[in-house]
Structures are given as structure tokens and as C-alpha cells.
Design a protein around this nucleic acid. Structure first.
Length: 422
DNA sequence: TCTGGGGTCCTAGGACCC
DNA sequence: TCTGGGGTCCTAGGACCC
């Protein structure tokens, strides 16, 4: 049976989430900013039309936004993550299997499920999602994941397609793709685009006619795989079961530069706390990692990048062990006399928590510690993240990330529920 | 003067993604 | 004044081994 993949994603997803809970935003341009309100990361079509680009620093577009009455939001990942889960619950009922690819994109495997009217199926799916969650979406369909991605992109660019594009038929693909620029293809970024342009390959049509050996020279096996996928030969399987994660990081820019060691260690302790929570959430433990700290690369401050490994005796997901290791490494990495803009903890080698190698120097009662961590997680699940934490992570936290324009966490906090007046 | 031929494993860095 | 965060995969090159 031929394979059929559908890629569905939310249109300007973060902006759409904001619109769901505030009807007044429907007609206004909406912009969502990155952490620290640093730069633009989600834009509605009206915002794009104003010439605001992905990644534009907010301080450079602030006055334009004010003039054009753009509704500007800090990012509210709690809300977006919860909306994402709602979407995926719907998709489950519409596919044989699904792969959650990112916070706003999922691949649906629909071979054998929908054989005739694929476009009709996709339109029904879109309208169901819109009705149940308020989120507008687009759907791309194809015999490979790369073609489904490209079909989705085509649906977005051509309003007359009604949010759905089906690339199952080679003739339809040819018609749409002959003049599509190569940098719209999943996996072809800036560097590869530049290389391909020197080979006189500008469009997907050019790419399909090119000698695969030349593509391989320019782009290694990755490029070869893309060509196969574009021709309808599936090379990228559906990952219905998320792979065991290989690494994990908690890194943040500071709201104002950190110049004192105590503040830096406080921040690292807070990041270690969050990293340990993530480890336990994924059922893994860290064997290796490091902390780092660096100055701002843009503002002319004296440059520094400093990093030191964590000294972990054994695989751990214990908050206090990780805090100790992070603070210890942080002290060794610290250089006085710089203005630090960002720091983080990076865990690079993870193992499954039920297969932890015991250290010869084991000193803590592991079961007791595990119960303590469970208790802390339970308290924080009930009363909100950060209700119970180690004082090493700081109380005042002047350095912590800015979210000055964040909307309420409508769906996950009782005291932030939306209010309806009737 | 002339300096083998494989393997494996690890790491750093590049490229790409959302 | 003010420029995000968190992932994955691939390759090259060094260390090491027989």
C-alpha cells in the first residue's frame, strides 16, 4: 500500500493561541516575542505585511508596532503547550498513527484510512480543529514527509487552496513545484541554498533534474535523501514513539547583565533545578554535562565565554545533587570583571533512570532521595512550578527572564481562567 | 632520502529545524 | 538601554589500537 502522510500545523500558532482567548484580537495584527521580550518569533499575516521579520529585535520595531496598533505579547509557553496537547488529542482520532513533530506541527499517517477524497478529509479535519479549539490550521498531503511539508507550505502560500494541498499526484506536484525556490524545502537552509545556487540550481524543478552525485557532493547524504523524498520515495519514517532524548539544556539570557558571582550562582542553581525537573519528567538521569556563561555578543561588552564540566559521580536526576554540581562548576567558570548576558546548564549524556549505574562512592540513600524528589514534584504540580525550591536558587531573582506582556495562563491556572460576562 | 593500513571511538563544529 | 531557547543529525579529524 502506498504511503500517505499529512502534515498539519497551526497558522501563526502562538498568535492564534492568543486570539482564541481574546476576541478583540481577531481583527488586529498580533505579534509574540521570544524570552526576555527579545525578538519577534510569531507573526500574523498582518504583522508580516508590515515588514516585520522573524527574529527582528523588538527594540527596533517597537515604535512601528505602537503606530500600527499591533497587539504584542511575551511568549506564554504554558498556554501554547496546553493548546498543543489539545490539538494532538484531536489528531489521534483522525490518523492511524501520529508523530508530534513540534509544538505546532504533527505528521498524520493516513494510508488506507483515506483513499479517495483526501482534500475533503483534510478540510473536515481543519474545521473540526477550528470548532473545538479555535486554532486555524493548514494541511499538506504527500507520499513522503518532505512532500507533505512542501504541500503544507504551498497551502499556506496560496489562499485559493482553502488551507489544503494534496501532492499525492505527481502531475500536481510538478505544476506547483517547478518554480518553487529550493530554500522552501525542508532540510535546505541558508548554507545549502548558497551551494546549490553556485550549481545553478534555483528551483525544486532544477533540483529534480540535477545529477544526484553533484547534489551529494554539495550536501552529503542529507541532500541525497531530500531528492529521493521529493521524487516520492520515502526515506524518513514516521516516528510515532518519541526517541529517548539524548541531551537536555536549560539556558537563559538575563533581563539585566549579571556582574556579581553570587547572582550567577543563584541563576545556575535555578537552571539546575529546572533541568532536574525535566530529567525526572522524561524518566532519565544525567551522566555528563557542563555549565556556561557568556557576555552579550551584540553590544560591545568585553567578550567572554566560560564553561566548566559538572563533576557527577553517578547518573542523577536529583535536584540537590545537580544544584551542588552546577554551583561548583559555576565557581570554577566564574571570571570577575565581565558583564554576563546569558548562562546555562547543558546535560549531554542521559541514561534511562531505571538503569542507573551505581557509584562506588555512593553516599546518599537513593530511595530516600527519590521519594523526596517525588514529593517536591507533587507539590509543584499541585501549586504551580516553583512553589517549592531550594533557597540556593535565589528568592529575589533580579536576573530572571522578562515577560512584561504575557497573557494569562488561561487553561492551566485556576486563578487565571478567562472570565465571561453574560 | 625512505615512515602501512586499517579499524573504532570520541569530540567539536556545522547545518538545520521549530 | 533593549538581539530567544532547545533540539537533532552529520562529518572531519584526532587519539588510540592491532
Amino acid at each position: 500500500m502506498a504511503r500517505v502522510y499529512a502534515l498539519i500545523d497551526g497558522n501563526s500558532f502562538y498568535c492564534s493561541c492568543e486570539r482564541v482567548f481574546d476576541a478583540k484580537l481577531a481583527k488586529r495584527p498580533v505579534l509574540v516575542l521570544s524570552n526576555n521580550d527579545g525578538c519577534a518569533i510569531a507573526r500574523t499575516s498582518e504583522v508580516k505585511a508590515l515588514g516585520i521579520k522573524m527574529g527582528d529585535p523588538y527594540f527596533k520595531i517597537r515604535s512601528l508596532c505602537a503606530r500600527e496598533r499591533v497587539a504584542v505579547f511575551s511568549s506564554n509557553y504554558t498556554l501554547y503547550g496546553d493548546m498543543s496537547r489539545r490539538l494532538n488529542r484531536i489528531y489521534q482520532g483522525w490518523a492511524r498513527e501520529i508523530e508530534v513533530y513540534s509544538i505546532d506541527e504533527s505528521f498524520l499517517y493516513i494510508a488506507g484510512l483515506v483513499d479517495r477524497d483526501r482534500v475533503g478529509y483534510a478540510k473536515d479535519l481543519r474545521s473540526t480543529v477550528k470548532r473545538w479549539t479555535g486554532i486555524p490550521t493548514c494541511v499538506g498531503i504527500g507520499p513522503t514527509k518532505t512532500l507533505a511539508k512542501l504541500a503544507n507550505h504551498t497551502a499556506k502560500k496560496n489562499a485559493d487552496l482553502g488551507g489544503v494541498c494534496d501532492f499525492t499526484d505527481p502531475k500536481t506536484r510538478e505544476r506547483h513545484l517547478a518554480e518553487t525556490a529550493i530554500d522552501n524545502v525542508w532540510g535546505i537552509g541558508r548554507a545549502s541554498t548558497a551551494k546549490l545556487l553556485t550549481l545553478d540550481i534555483r528551483t525544486v524543478g532544477d533540483l529534480l533534474e540535477a545529477d544526484p552525485k553533484r547534489i551529494r557532493m554539495a550536501m552529503t547524504v542529507v541532500g541525497e535523501r531530500i531528492i529521493h523524498e521529493l521524487k516520492g520515495v520515502s526515506c524518513l519514517p514516521l516516528d510515532a514513539v518519541p526517541a529517548q532524548r539524548k541531551g537536555l539544556a536549560v539556558t537563559r539570557s538575563f533581563s539585566t547583565a549579571v556582574t556579581g558571582e553570587a547572582k550567577m550562582l543563584e541563576a545556575l542553581a535555578a537552571y539546575a533545578t529546572r533541568a532536574a525537573e525535566k530529567l525526572r519528567h522524561h524518566g532519565v538521569a544525567a551522566v555528563q554535562g557542563h555549565v556556561f556563561m557568556h557576555s552579550n555578543k551584540h553590544n560591545g561588552d568585553r567578550p567572554i565565554y566560560s564553561s566548566k564540566p559538572l563533576a557527577l559521580l553517578e547518573a542523577t536526576a536529583d535536584t540537590h545533587v545537580l544544584i551542588d554540581a552546577a554551583v561548583h562548576a559555576g565557581k570554577r567558570a566564574w571570571r570577575q570583571g565581565y558583564r554576563y548576558a546569558k548562562a546555562g546548564i547543558v546535560l549531554t549524556d542521559l541514561v534511562s533512570a531505571d538503569r542507573i549505574q551505581k557509584s562506588f562512592f555512593q553516599t546518599l540513600d537513593r530511595d530516600e532521595r527519590a521519594r523526596l524528589m517525588e514529593a517536591i514534584d507533587a507539590v509543584n504540580a499541585r501549586f504551580g512550578r516553583g512553589s517549592l525550591f531550594s533557597a540556593a536558587a535565589g528568592i529575589k531573582r533580579e536576573w530572571s527572564t522578562k515577560f512584561e506582556m504575557r497573557s494569562p495562563r488561561y487553561t492551566t491556572r485556576w486563578n487565571e481562567l478567562p472570565v465571561a460576562n453574560a
